[in-house]
Design a protein around this nucleic acid. Structure first.
Lengths: 158, 158
DNA sequence: TGAATATAGTTGTATAATACAACTATGATT
DNA sequence: AATCATAGTTGTATTATACAACTATATTCA
């Protein structure tokens, strides 16, 4: 049933989605964050750090992109020698991704750059509200992901 | 000062930013939402609806993109005859954008499609929490925009 | 066991979004 | 009037991206 309140919410949601579109452009894929690494590329490095034995299939789930895109997102990181590839132990079709020494260093530096970015963002949120805000944003993201899974509009990529 | 809590927050924030990157891909620019219009294109139609006399400069602020990109995002909408251009009344360099009749119809249809999408997303959030969640997400977006303005990393585009 | 099927990943190809620089045309300032 | 600023477009290049077709390995089942 549509009442005034829901209808206002829809306009609010439109603003929110526009806002998200604006701010995610801010951590744009192609804008190098630090050490020549973009936010999206850092996501890959970080996923490898956090999951040790990561193969491409895990990664394209994590990034919500097509498998071919995963290959192409990984390849510049291989070329820069931040990541290296090995055949996965129990499946010789699969590829295991690992950080090189250089990759570890870069990951560390970019992470400290990013935490600084996070810190500065959080400065703009009253400390008392911070917890609630982060929880809420997570809830919101989950709600969208749930919907995406149901409707399969994103081909189960999320 | 870095304590355990802040550090945990940083990992939480990393998850959040990854999540945002995933879900915004879900309303991908190039995935037609409805009536052959993408979410991003709808944002343009909607901005024109909401602001009546919109020129390109307003629009590239609204979309947080470079002015040349604005031109190119608008042009398919002109071609599809959803928007039309007129010279702005008090400045003949500027262009005033307006919806055509067809544009109004398409806007209406896509809006109803989008509100349906919003409704389904909100189904995944407990009704009691909904207000807090939306407020919080807005706070979060504003925090990022504030930071972006300060640091000018986004060239004042946000 | 061997054929059929499924899965992991890569490459070919095409498209969309995007930025930056250079440009045109108009407006504002001094 | 000359200079500077602003609105918008176009040239050019890059990146992200998907889909389809492919190779190579695994799994299943008859």
């Amino acid at each position: 049933m549509i009442n005034k309140k829901t209808s206002a919410n829809y306009h609010e949601l439109m603003e929110i989605f526009s806002g998200l579109s604006q701010v995610t452009r801010c951590c744009r894929q192609d804008e190098a964050f630090c050490e020549g690494v973009t936010f999206h590329q850092f996501m890959i490095l970080d996923a490898v750090v956090k999951h040790k034995e990561l193969n491409m299939a895990d990664l394209h789930k994590h990034l919500s992109v097509e498998k071919s895109t995963t290959t192409r997102l990984v390849s510049p990181l291989i070329q820069k020698k931040l990541l290296r590839r090995e055949t996965a132990p129990h499946d010789s079709r699969a590829v295991k991704l690992m950080l090189t020494k250089k990759g570890e260093n870069v990951h560390r530096k970019v992470w400290s750059y990013i935490t600084d970015f996070f810190r500065k963002v959080m400065c703009n949120i009253p400390e008392k509200k911070a917890d609630v805000v982060l929880e809420s944003v997570k809830t919101f993201i989950e709600a969208i992901k749930n919907y995406a899974r149901e409707c399969s509009c994103c081909k189960a990529r999320v």
